[in-house]
Design a protein around this nucleic acid. Structure first.
Lengths: 191, 191
DNA sequence: CTAAAGGTATACCGATTTGTCTACATAAAG
DNA sequence: CTTTATGTAGACAAATCGGTATACCTTTAG
């Protein structure tokens, strides 16, 4: 019954499905059944609410992904699991994450395109967190600097590509394709 | 002095930089210095204007990319040129395309997330056009069905990943990384 | 007992949204 | 010469935007 949390969750659902600019304060209030005064008691502005929503999604998504990856052996298994997790997300097999509508952070950067914009930067930090997850898997394979940075970028590129292909082009097997390509990258490194 | 074209170009510039929902009709009118009556003479609604803007960008971007790719030998050279062209775009070396703010069609799908939405579908068709460009390069290498379809998806995934990494994470060398990875994919196929 | 925190409901503010309208000007074509 | 297409300038409408304000209720803690 935490009203603040209810507002964040309702706002996320609406923002994720319809975009941030397209959803007004009043729609969030009507959907959640919470009074306007209460919203402005917890948040100074719509902007502050959006920032809280991004942090909420960052926590939820990262924790989910990290728990999936950390449940298996670091290294090959971890990277496999990363793409399997993406595949489950894309194909709506993860009820925790809401129906797939692309990556909320990529979508946010599309709406707030300026890299200096606070919402863009929060999204960027989320991506950096996920990159550290990838990097730790590569380090477990004995890959060290500077190769580990280059490889992390490669895997991250495959991950982003898979998410966007799934969303924009409706290619639901994009994560499996990303996984196959990740294997080729690794094989090439160790050959 | 074609007012219709002026409106489309002004609208594109504003939509691309700030997002579609964030830009109002009045802002487009003020920036272009065109009267409201004129806009509604040429377009039935804002939605119709947006569709015209997407088609304008589709033409402009596809023609630019195809002319770059078709200027070199089909096959390896064409694929190389594809990623070199992306690299030029990302690093603002193509004045024709306006300052890089990610892919306008990916951004549009982020704002209009429902795959059934007309604007989402127009964006999807643009991606399909670009895919045919990739496919023809692969066919020039002697790759035939069904492998050519799978390979086209792979290259497309790398392309999307590069664009998003460049925009969201600010990684300006993402297209070069995509090119390197494309080479590995091709090498693996022919080995 | 009282005071503060958190809540509902709703009226209101000024600005902005898409879109329509009137009135008028110009230029080209039959 | 007159019609049609295309244009400007701007008032106007109805709705919605983010945000503030008033009035009142309930729970909890000192």
């Amino acid at each position: 019954m935490d009203k603040r949390q209810q507002l964040i969750q309702t706002a996320f659902d609406l923002f994720y499905r319809n975009g941030i600019h397209a959803v007004g304060i009043n729609q969030i209030l009507q959907t959640s059944g919470i009074a306007k005064k209460t919203l402005y008691h917890h948040f100074a502005s719509k902007q502050a609410l959006i920032e809280a929503v991004l942090e909420y999604r960052d926590e939820k998504f990262y924790n989910w992904l990290a728990s999936r990856v950390d449940a298996v052996k670091p290294g090959y298994d971890g990277l496999n699991e990363l793409f399997d997790a993406l595949d489950d997300w894309i194909n709506n097999r993860v009820k925790l994450l809401t129906d797939f509508h692309g990556c909320f952070f990529i979508n946010t950067c599309a709406e707030f395109s300026d890299p200096q914009h606070p919402l863009h930067q929060i999204s960027q930090r989320h991506k950096q967190r996920v990159n550290t997850l990838i990097e730790s898997q590569l380090r477990a394979l004995g890959i060290i600097a500077p190769a580990v940075y280059s490889m992390t970028e490669s895997i991250s590129l495959l991950k982003e590509g898979a998410i966007v292909m799934a969303h924009v082009q409706g290619n639901l097997s994009a994560a499996q394709k990303g996984k196959d390509m990740a294997w080729l990258i690794l094989a090439a490194y160790f050959s």
